[in-house]
Amino acid sequence: MFVVATIMIILGMVLTLMRLFGGPTVYDRVLAVNLFGTLTVLLIAVKGFLSGRPDFLDIALLYALINFVGTIAVLKFFRYRAIGDYARTRDDEEEQS
């Protein structure tokens, strides 16, 4: 059964990649990357069961953490054009110009 699940998840990842490359807006791409990450977590977990070594779950957990933080960081960057504490707002830019 895990073979079937693995094949279906990989198929889903291929479709997500197609959206990632074809997405018209940047938000389509971020959404696709986020979805790809979720599918990767599931794939790693299923792959662990497929090969009879559920130790892979630690990697899946780590990947879930990184995926979430990465998505938020990319969105924050596109919103403020900065990742640090001091994100410049439009008001600041108006004052400077």
Binding site: M1, A5, T6, M8, G12, T16, R19, A32, L35, L39
Partner: peptide, 28 residues
């Protein structure tokens, strides 16, 4: 497991198929 993989595939298929960004959110 198989139905879960099916829904995961449907979600990915939806992000590929649906016409615009706002509807793709729901597929994801």
């Amino acid at each position: 497991v198989v139905s879960g993989a099916f829904f995961a595939l449907v979600g990915a298929f939806g992000t590929w198929r649906l016409p615009d960004f706002w509807s793709r959110l729901h597929a994801a």
